[in-house]
Amino acid sequence: MARYTGPKTRISRIFGEPILGNGKYLGKNSNPPGQHGPNRRRKQPSEYALQLREKQKAKYTYGLLERQFRKTFEEASRRKGATGENLIKLLEARLDNAVFRMGIAPSRPAARQLVSHKHITVNGEVVNIPSCQLRPGDVVGLKPKSAGNTALTSNVRGKNQKYTWLDWNEKDLKGTFITYPEREHVPENIKEQLIVELYSK
């Protein structure tokens, strides 16, 4: 299973944001990584550098590697509407992201693990593919055996109310992917237009 397994705090320090993890060390040491990080005088980043930075930020945020991210972008470009907004919608419609947004798992890597270990169902069927694209109306939940596991259910915290494109039933431990989210409702600090410009070269 292809995924980033390196140091998480290092990635957060590169972008100056808690991309992975809670970012609790950013306040103590917000310098870029490396022995010359504190003293390095950086030139004004080029246009390409800014575009690449946004692409890398999106990849790390949603837990994709280059090939999978490129395929997602190509799918977004084939759909009607703005390519950048379509890209964010497709990333938000990934099963592992929906599990995280619904509060079933505390983080995207944890959600990815739940999916790959066959704890998650979509419309009553067990799905173990984290990149599975949800469609409006799909119901996501824990399979019955997993729902009885207190080690798993203790981490369920419920959906944040600001995620209006998702519904969550705490009693049944099931959630519904209502619709694709509008860009202004997705809280991630990603400038998707720069990613479109990068891939358009």
Rank of each mutant, 00 (worst) to 15 (best):
R70N: 05
T61A: 03
S77M: 01
A58G: 10
L91S: 05
T72M: 10
L65I: 14
S77N: 07
G63I: 08
L64H: 07
I88E: 06
N39L: 15
E66V: 07
T83L: 10
P38A: 06
T72P: 02
A58K: 14
P45H: 05
E85A: 10
Q56H: 09
Y60T: 05
Y62H: 01
E54I: 09
P33F: 04
R41T: 00
F73I: 12
R53E: 09
E54W: 14
S77A: 08
R70S: 05
S77T: 03
K55L: 00
R53P: 10
K43A: 04
E75Q: 07
K80R: 15
R41E: 00
E74L: 12
P33W: 05
L91D: 11
F69I: 02
P38N: 04
N39Q: 13
L91G: 06
E92F: 09
K43W: 00
R41S: 01
E47G: 00
G34E: 15
R78H: 09
L91W: 13
E85Y: 06
G63R: 02
L52W: 10
L91H: 09
E66W: 11
P38D: 02
E75A: 10
T72N: 05
H36E: 11
P38S: 03
E47N: 07
G37I: 02
L87Y: 12
L50I: 10
K57C: 00
K71Y: 11
E75I: 09
R53Y: 07
K80S: 15
T61Y: 09
A58N: 14
E66N: 08
L65Q: 12
T83H: 08
E75C: 01
Q44Y: 09
I88T: 06
T72G: 04
L90W: 10
N86T: 10
A49T: 14
Q35A: 08
Q51P: 06
K80E: 11
R67P: 03
E47S: 04
N86A: 08
A49P: 04
F69K: 01
G84R: 15
R67A: 11
E92R: 04
R42Q: 07
E74M: 13
E47I: 09
L52P: 07
R42Y: 08
Q68G: 02
L64P: 03
L50Q: 08
G81F: 14
R42T: 02
K59P: 13
F69V: 01
R79L: 15
K57I: 01
R42N: 01
A49Y: 07
P38T: 00
E75L: 13
R67N: 11
R79C: 06
E54C: 10
H36D: 15
E92Y: 13
L64C: 03
Y48D: 03
N39S: 09
Y62T: 02
G81T: 12
L91V: 05
F73R: 04
E54S: 08
P38R: 03
Q56V: 02
R70P: 01
E66M: 08
S77C: 00
K89P: 08
K55F: 05
E54Q: 15
K71V: 06
G81Y: 14
Q35T: 10
T61P: 02
K55M: 04
K71E: 06
E85R: 11
L52C: 03
Q68M: 05
S77R: 14
L87D: 11
